[in-house]
């Protein structure tokens, strides 16, 4: 495999958290990768898929497949959007064998950011430094669909000056869930507040995750509660020096 990687930054990072995408590109470049950004990219289609609109999700998924067809390796700063491509695109194209073949080819090329670092780049120490006490929030799709548990922790363990404290329970959902967060706002808010109790229990100052959507939910609830904690994407932590 060459050292060219394409970024799929996700619509959320593009529109709301661009610094996460820049941080991810910085880290990759520091490791010697040449990074490109296919300009046609938009979204993976998950909002439509999770809302029951499969035809619309299929349309967006086709656009993704076309956009990244030429890319050799695609790195994504989100477990959830990665899982949409690697675990759910196939469901959408069960009746289209030709597209399904494209999906299966794509599944092998798409990597969540932390997994790419530990499994493809084979690094755990990216030379980052951040003096802070942090806790790590497992995004549900990263954890349960992609089986990502140790990779981000190994990467954080090598960040100089950083202390990682685990939440109890670490694996419970933050309550985001896409349109769930607004369809069942009160319930979603209650789940976020339970998550925040777990975060506060660690005494950490910063919450780190692989998923911008979880971080938006957690930061939104922290901010609403008037708590002075910050949230950071793993890429931002690893870009610090």
């Amino acid at each position: 495999m060459g050292n060219q990687v394409s970024l799929f930054v996700t619509c959320m990072v593009d529109q709301l958290f661009p610094k996460v995408g820049i941080a991810m590109a910085d880290v990759l470049e520091r490791l010697g990768y040449r990074v490109d950004f296919p300009e046609q990219q938009t979204c993976c289609g998950q909002p439509a898929y999770n809302s029951g609109y499969r035809a619309e999700a299929r349309t967006v998924a086709r656009h993704f497949l076309k956009t990244f067809q030429a890319s050799e390796t695609i790195v994504v700063p989100s477990g959830s959007c990665t899982a949409m491509v690697t675990h759910h695109f196939a469901d959408l194209f069960q009746k289209e064998p030709e597209t399904l073949a494209l999906v299966h080819a794509m599944e092998k090329k798409v990597y969540e950011f932390a997994t790419f670092l530990t499994e493809v780049a084979c690094v755990e120490d990216v030379g980052a430094r951040m003096e802070d006490v942090v806790t790590f929030h497992d995004g549900c799709h990263a954890l349960r669909e992609l089986g990502i548990k140790s990779a981000p922790r190994r990467l954080l363990a090598h960040v100089k000056g950083l202390e990682l404290r685990e939440m109890a329970p670490a694996e419970e959902c933050c309550g985001f869930g896409g349109t769930f967060a607004v369809k069942f706002a009160e319930l979603s808010g209650a789940m976020a507040r339970t998550k925040i109790d777990a975060i506060l229990g660690t005494g950490a100052h910063t919450v780190v995750s692989l998923d911008p959507s979880c971080l938006m939910q957690i930061q939104g609830a922290l901010s609403r509660a008037g708590l002075n904690l910050r949230t950071m994407h793993l890429a931002e932590v690893l870009a610090s020096r």
């Binding site: 930054v9 593009d14 958290f17 976020a192 939104g220 609830a221």
Partner: peptide
């Protein structure tokens, strides 16, 4: 109204960045 109101009933909303990622990327 709608989703905006529902979101804000429980949480704060992220501020809109001055530039999107793609704009930042082009100027990089």
């Amino acid at each position: 109204v709608g989703p905006m109101k529902a979101w804000l009933s429980q949480r704060d909303l992220p501020p809109s960045p001055s530039r999107s990622f793609r704009e930042m990327w082009r100027q990089r």
